[in-house]
Structures are given as C-alpha cells and as structure tokens.
Write a protein that binds this DNA or RNA. Structure first.
Lengths: 223, 223
DNA sequence: CTGCAAAGCGGACCCCGGTCCGCATTGTGT
DNA sequence: ACACAATGCGGACCGGGGTCCGCTTTGCAG
C-alpha cells in the first residue's frame, strides 16, 4: 500500500523540504487539522477562508480567481498558496467541515449510517447520505475536483473508499472489494451527479433509487 | 435530452458563431470526420497530428506544450486551437483512430464483441477489449481527460455509454440501465485504471476479473 | 486568367495558477 | 528586555492555455 509521489516521470530527488500545506497525504480521520500555526498565520487562514466562502457564494466557484481571494482577504497571493497548496486545496478546505461531519456520521454515528446495522443496510444509508451531501453544494464539489489523476489519492476519497470496502468485505466476502468499492463510489462522483441532474434532468430521488438498486444487486440483498 | 452549453453561470449571449473545430457535439459514429477542409487546412492538420504524436511519444504527453506542437509542425499557435479547439481536442484526435477501431468492433464486428452473442457475454467482451485498449496508451488517455465536467458529454464516452446501456436493457430490463451503464463504465475510467495499476500495483488480469465479476453480479449471470 | 468573398492563418496578447526569494513578524531562550 | 532563529509574508515573475484580429491563401465564378 504505497501511496507515494504519483507524478508520472518527476524526479523524486528533493522531496521539497518546505511544505506546510495541511495534512499532506495522510488519512484525515476527523480531528487532526490546524497543527498550531503562528498567530498571524492562523488569522490569515481564517480571513482567507471567509473571503473565499464569500466570493464563491457571491459569484460561483469557478468565477473566482486565487488573486481575488488573496486581495479580498487583504493578503498576498503567495500566502494563499503557502497555506493551501493550490486551488484545489483551498476549495477542499471550504468543504472540509461538512465532509468531516459526514465522516463522523458513518464512522461513529448512530445506525443505520454508523456501526450497528448490517453492512448492506449501512451501504444503502451511506449512499443516501453522501448523495444528499453532495447535492447540497454540488458546484463547489465540482470545482474542487482535482486533475483526474489525483482524485483517488485525496484524503476524503480515501476515507470513503476504505469505509465502503470494509462494508463490502462483510457483505460479499468472495468479491474483489477494493475494486468494487471504487465502482460503487463512482456513482457518487460529483461530476456524474451533475451530469445526470443538470444535463439529463434526473431528479435526486432517481439517483438514490439507483444507488439502492446497485447495492442490492451487488450484495445479493433484496432490500 | 438537451446537451447544451453547461458552463455554470456563463452568459450564453453569443453562441460563438465561428466554431469549425471538429464534430462539435454530435455522436461520432465512426465515419464522419474531416468535413472537407481547404487544402492548406488539411495539410496543416496532418502536420500537426504528426508533430504532436512525435512529441508525445518522445517526451510524454503532459510534458508537451501546445506552442511546441505548433512550432514542430511549422504553423502558428492559433492554427492548433482553430483546428482542435483546445488541448483536450488535440489529444483526443490523437486517440481517435484506435477509439474508432474499438467502436467498429463492438458495433458491428464479430461476436462475442459484436452483435450475435447474448448481452451478458457481449458486456464481458466489451470490458476486456476496452480495458486492453486503455492500457495500451494509458498516458495519453490520462492526459486527454478533460475537466471533470465534460467527461460524460464527450463523443467517445457517449458512444460507449449508449452501447452499454443498450446491452444492459436486454440483460436486466428491470434496472435503471442509464445510470447503471455509467457505473459500469466507471470501472474502465483511465484515471482509475492508472491508480489501480500504477499506485496500487494491481496486474491487468485482476482488473479484467473484477470487470467480469461485476457484470456477473449485475446481470445475475454466473458464468 | 482574374477578381473577390470566404476560409484560414499566425503571433501578439491576456489571464491565471503557481513559484521564488528577499524582507518582516513572531515567539523563545537567556 | 533583547537577540536571533524560524516561520511566514507578499508581490514580482514565469509558463502555458486560450483568444483576437489584421493579413494571406484558396478556390470558385465569370
């Protein structure tokens, strides 16, 4: 399970010794953020998030430029990138709160989402929850989708994948659950949701039904 | 089924009256390309493709810049964009030939890929073929992935989706085949393939097996 | 062969994401 | 209180994708 570098042919010579960003690669399991920054840094971070949220809300995620955010927060462009790594990082930070809430719910909340219900049941609940959460701020999720290559290595995805794979192993021990989990998660991909809802005009209910049906087929359960 | 604009909040005022590009939005069903260009245009197009192919082969897809391609072909940058629309367009044009071949094979080739075999059988064959074809030039496919939003509206994807949905409707008439087809196709996504093979170290055989297994589970077949 | 509209060309230009590095701010040890 | 690392800041800078518009080429009609 080495989740290292990944840039195709980039020489891994110097592992870029300066890289605070945030939670560089590790699983974000809920409650680790903000590794005690310096006073001014913390203040700027807060300002940036606020400014970004405001601009995004006002003009839509992909009409907002990094420089604008910096300006609105009253800091320099470099500061934004130092803190959040890149555009995707900033956008993800904006989504972080609600993602954490979802994570908490399916990792340790009450059944059927959390532990306690049978796996197939939990899978169905997971899909419903994730779907609704995604629909809430679709636009932002969409804009936060990194270049296709990184998608699967981003912490939020990894957590979801780990969870779904776990449930699958309980429900269908004879399947290749690692791969299957990716397939299931694909049906919750913001880009797909957007396509189905906004371009094909499907109602959210249909997506929930499709998820349920898929889980039923794969686990062999009949609802 | 309106597949219009799609840019979230962009004013659709002027539908950009000049847009030759190629096969703007329609299904590419095999044999429509090159709507008779002017002599010089055709020559430049050929030169560009050749130059691009050369550079990509030599230095890897994402180390090649549009300006380089233009220079190598002895034309101006503007010409590249006029002909191919954007970077993705150029890359896709490079993949066009092999994609057409695959399309021909599953649309009208011999069974089990083409018509004649039972649907579940055809689905299995489709996955195998698509998988192998994708592995062949993974890097290019990866680089050609557009921004996530456009993925599902690109002609090659639409053709595949249409095909898979058709087979599904025959095999499992009671399911939501439109959505299900997207789910199946997700397992053939170049980005996922790359992740599983190059970052998780899975052998191609395992992906083929996973596809077969998935088809079996969904169609209820046991073969 | 010639004239002329349409089609195509090309490179200067813009924009934006991302980097870099000399300077300013912290906060800690004494 | 002071000095001095370490940490962070910021804006000049760069590279590459994509656009624009005046000029050239093409090829058709007469």
């Amino acid at each position: 399970m080495l989740y290292a570098g990944f840039m195709s042919a980039a020489p891994p010579s110097a592992p870029t010794p300066q890289e605070p960003v945030e939670s560089p690669q590790l699983l974000q399991l809920g409650l680790d953020d903000e590794p005690c920054l310096r006073a001014d840094a913390a203040r700027n971070r807060a300002r940036l998030l606020e400014a970004a949220a405001g601009l995004v809300a006002a003009r839509g995620a992909d009409a907002v430029t990094m420089e604008e955010v910096a300006a609105a927060a009253g800091v320099g462009k470099g500061t934004v990138f130092r803190r959040f790594g890149d555009r995707t990082g900033l956008l993800m930070a904006l989504l972080d709160h609600s993602e954490k809430k979802l994570q908490a719910a399916f990792l340790s909340g009450p059944p059927p989402l959390g532990p306690g219900a049978p796996p197939a049941e939990r899978l169905r609940a997971f899909g419903r929850a994730a779907l609704r959460r995604t629909v809430e701020d679709l636009e932002l999720q969409l804009a936060a989708e990194a270049d296709p290559g990184r998608r699967f290595t981003l912490p939020p995805y990894r957590v979801r994948h780990h969870h779904v794979a776990l449930l699958l192993r309980q429900a269908v021990p004879d399947a290749d659950c690692d791969v299957l989990a990716h397939t299931l998660l694909a049906q919750l991909d913001p880009a797909l949701i957007h396509h189905l809802m906004h371009q094909c005009g499907m109602p959210p209910q249909r997506l929930e039904d499709a998820w349920t049906d898929l889980v039923d087929r794969i686990t062999g359960t009949t609802a």
